[in-house]
Design a protein around this nucleic acid. Structure first.
Lengths: 151, 151
DNA sequence: GCTTGACCTCAACTTTACTTGAGGTTTTAG
DNA sequence: CTAAAACCTCAAGTAAAGTTGAGGTCAAGC
């Protein structure tokens, strides 16, 4: 096997993910793998970076579907450069700033709002968050936290 | 029906939730309801406040199980006072501060870390967030975002 | 040359947070 | 008094993000 390719076990080890998660991500189109003669997976080196990126985005609360959309803007046919990654991360940077701002507002609302007893009234900002969603770039959304599930 | 009790439709209207969600929350022990002679639900007025609290906590990324634990510390037998709610919200305030700090660190890491190319290396803080979880009070956890699901 | 560990596929199960639907009852408006 | 709107229960379905297990293959060490 080429020097620059990684086995499933190596990727799992270095990413902290389980092999089953790697299969899942591949099925979802988030990472790719070539196969050896014996049909075993070999991951390109930049897989670790992709996985790190996926993990960071997930920690911000972005869904795999949105992450896939963002990763799809990476160039095909060549290994992404640092500049490619930076372009992507700039979007998340905005996302993070927005999320931080939202949380700060939520905290401040909580300070004044529950204390004053207005919570549950129609006019309460905490109760009626007006700007829960926003879009900043490809696939970036869900500024305030995990979804309140639906179909 | 007593002046201070609300019908399912009224609660749904004012909370923005569906009636099915109210049933679900009741089954999960997050809210309660009395019944009329005809077996229909009537919600105490503070249900709206409970729901507002639940919504705020969810937006921070706290699970219903943890929210239930927190709500369970409210006094039984009497309507919670503003002070009761404030005690609870103080916990979330800490939670919010912690989450904000985590996101700020994540953003700063992203600024330096992806740019410098270290992402995916074992020593990278972004790649290896060391302090993803912490406990501050009853049921408070998950500081950095939604869980990466598991069994 | 065989055993052991890493791999493979595929289907089914898990959790959280709800929704939908079926089949039947209660309340309200006219 | 009746028709419509709102309610009830209970079972089953949904979505996301994976994990687990069964049954079989591949590769490395002794």
């Amino acid at each position: 096997m080429t020097v620059s390719e990684l086995t499933p076990a190596q990727v799992a080890e270095r990413s902290g993910l389980k092999v089953s998660a790697l299969h899942f991500y591949e099925k979802e189109g988030l990472i790719t793998a070539t196969r050896t003669g014996g049909n075993q997976r070999r991951y390109p080196r930049d897989t670790l970076r992709r996985l790190a990126f996926i993990g960071a985005a997930q920690r911000v609360g972005i869904s795999l579907a949105d992450i896939r959309t963002a990763l799809a803007t990476l160039p095909e046919g060549r290994t992404p450069t640092a500049a490619d990654w930076e372009r992507l991360s700039a979007v998340w940077r905005e996302e993070l700033n927005a999320r931080i701002a939202t949380l700060e507002r939520l905290r401040d609302d909580l300070n004044g709002c529950i204390r004053c007893g207005c919570l549950s009234l129609d006019s309460c900002r905490l109760y009626n968050p007006g700007d829960e969603y926003g879009r900043l770039g490809p696939g970036a959304n869900r500024l305030t936290g995990p979804p309140r599930a639906g179909p």
